[in-house]
Each structure stands twice: as C-alpha cells, then as structure tokens.
C-alpha cells in the first residue's frame, strides 16, 4: 500500500514536471547502460580490430568504429562511466567542502570565522579555475603523483580541481540558508537546551539547506561533465586508451576532413544528451524544492 502510494505520488510529480521527467529519462538512457556496460553484450571498448577500422555505422557496428577499429557504441557507454564518476565525485566533494564551510560561516555569523570563510569564497571566485585546472593538470599531469603512499590517479586530480571550482558557489548557497536558520527561534531554543554547535549545524541547519544545495549540485553535474570532456579533449584529463568522451573527440579531429563524421558526432551527442538531462532535472528540482531561488544560475 505504502509502496503504491509512493509510486502514485512520484507519477503525480512527474506529470506536473514534464520537462523534468524528460531530463530524468535522458539521464537514465545514458547512465543505466553505462552502469551495465560490463554485463551488456557489447564489444570490448579497447579491442583493436584493424580489419574494421573507420567503419561507418551499420548493423554490426551501430555507431561505427574509430581509427583502431574499436566499437564506438561500446566506447561511448564505457566513457559514460568515466564522465559520471568524475562529475559525481567532483560535485560530491565540492558539496562536502563548500557546504560544510558555508554552514559554519552562517552559524558563526559576526565572528572572525565567518569573515575568514566568506573571504576564501570571494578569493576563489576571483580565480579563473578552468585555466588554473588546465595549468595544474599540464604541469603535474604526466608525472606520477604520490601523497602519503597513495597514488593519485588522473581522475582523482580532475575531481579535486573541479570540486575546488564548485565549492564556493555551493558554499554560498549553504551560507545563505544557514544565515537565516541560525537566527530562527528553533535554533535559539536548541541552544538554550544546551545543544552543541556541531549538533545544531549538521542536524538542524543542514536539512534546511539541502533543497537549494541539491538544485545547485544537479546543475553542476552537467558543468562538470563538460569541463571533464574539455580537459580530456586537450589531452589533460583522462589519458588514452581509456575510453572517455573528451579523448574520443580529440581522436575525431584528425578524421573530420576525410569524411568519417561519426567519430566526431556520436560522443558529443552523448555529452549533450546527458547534460541536457541533468539541466532539465535541475530546473524541475528548482521549481519543486527551491521556488524562491536562492541557488545561483549555472556558471563556471
């Protein structure tokens, strides 16, 4: 009964937000096959097959093959795993850092802590983070990086750098809600009861900040996917031969003039579909969760 009503309610919400539902479906179309890629009956994404190189889309290779005869459909599906992992990792990490700092700054209104944290956000906003990310990846990218015995992979570096560029915006959203909540009666009552600041910030204020953070985070997933693809495209992201949408497009550059259009078109379409999906979802979530709109628009 409960499951039935939950389903009904979900359907009701979906009917009220047609474009959000379309977004959800678009994301599902890309993410689900990506998750299932290891068990789906598709070709090995890295299997070289020189007999079938640069094959146009046909029955055997639905989206064609690349210069090494690798199946593009398979590579796009495997590539979605890279994109989604990095995008979710970056947004998640950015939330962890930004939201924590933002909540604390709002709660400690009027103290040096607030001043310090908001100053750090201001400074991060004045940094061209895409340019910095490219410079940092370019300098440390090729060398093996080890921190305290852990080997840092390229994907982790990308996650950290993209997260750094999202943290201040996510932090400001959390800060705005925290400022309001910290002055509310229920928080004052909790304080009077002797609750510690950790408890108040994370158990009372955080739940109220979550809706606007979720909206912002969903919109950032799309941005993260584009940033990752751009970095991989210029050769400073995911390193070949691992399948990623950006590196596939980098390969495509060579074949644009000789007529092999499918190598350039399909990976980019995959990016577009996924990002449109996340943006439509973010828009719908904004109407649903954050109608007053304290979450900012999508900027990198």
């Amino acid at each position: 009964m409960v499951a039935g009503s939950a389903l009904q309610r979900t359907l009701q919400i979906a009917r009220g937000n047609p474009s959000g539902s379309v977004g959800f479906l678009l994301v599902l179309v890309i993410v689900l096959p990506g998750l299932l890629a290891p068990v789906l009956p598709i070709a090995d994404p890295n299997a070289l097959n020189l007999a079938h190189r640069l094959q146009a889309p046909d029955r055997e290779f639905l989206l064609g093959t690349d210069q090494a005869g690798r199946d593009l459909l398979s590579r796009i599906l495997w590539g979605s795993r890279e994109s989604i992992t990095i995008a979710f990792g970056a947004v998640g990490f950015g939330c962890l850092v930004g939201v924590t700092l933002g909540l604390i700054a709002g709660y400690m209104h009027g103290t040096i802590v607030e001043l310090l944290i908001t100053r750090v956000f201001d400074i991060l906003f004045s940094v061209p983070l895409l340019v910095l990310a490219i410079a940092v990846m370019g300098i440390v990218g090729s060398t093996k990086l080890e921190v305290w015995g852990f080997e840092i992979s390229n994907a982790m570096k990308l996650i950290a750098l993209i997260a750094l560029s999202f943290a201040p915006a996510l932090g400001r959203v959390a800060y705005a809600s925290s400022l309001v909540e910290a002055r509310s009666d229920y928080v004052r009552a909790k304080k009077a009861q002797g609750a510690g600041w950790l408890e108040i910030v994370f158990l009372d204020i955080l739940p109220n900040a979550i809706p606007s953070v979720i909206v912002q985070a969903t919109l950032f997933v799309g941005v993260a996917i584009i940033v990752e693809a751009s970095l991989s495209f210029v050769g400073l992201g995911i390193a070949p031969p691992t399948a990623s949408w950006g590196t596939m497009l980098a390969d495509a550059r060579t074949y644009i003039f000789s007529g092999e259009w499918w190598i350039a078109v399909f990976p980019g379409l995959a990016i577009c579909i996924t990002v449109v999906g996340f943006n439509l979802m973010g828009d719908a979530l904004r109407d649903l969760l954050d109608p007053r709109g304290s979450s900012r628009s999508i900027f990198v």
Partner: peptide, 15 residues
Amino acid sequence: AVIGVSTPGFWLGLV
C-alpha cells in the same frame, strides 16, 4: 537555451 548550456563549445566547433 537548454541546448545552449548543454553543448560543449569545442564539440559544436567540430560539428
């Protein structure tokens, strides 16, 4: 607008 914010500029360039 939705397509515009979702299309990577470099891919649009290739196409």
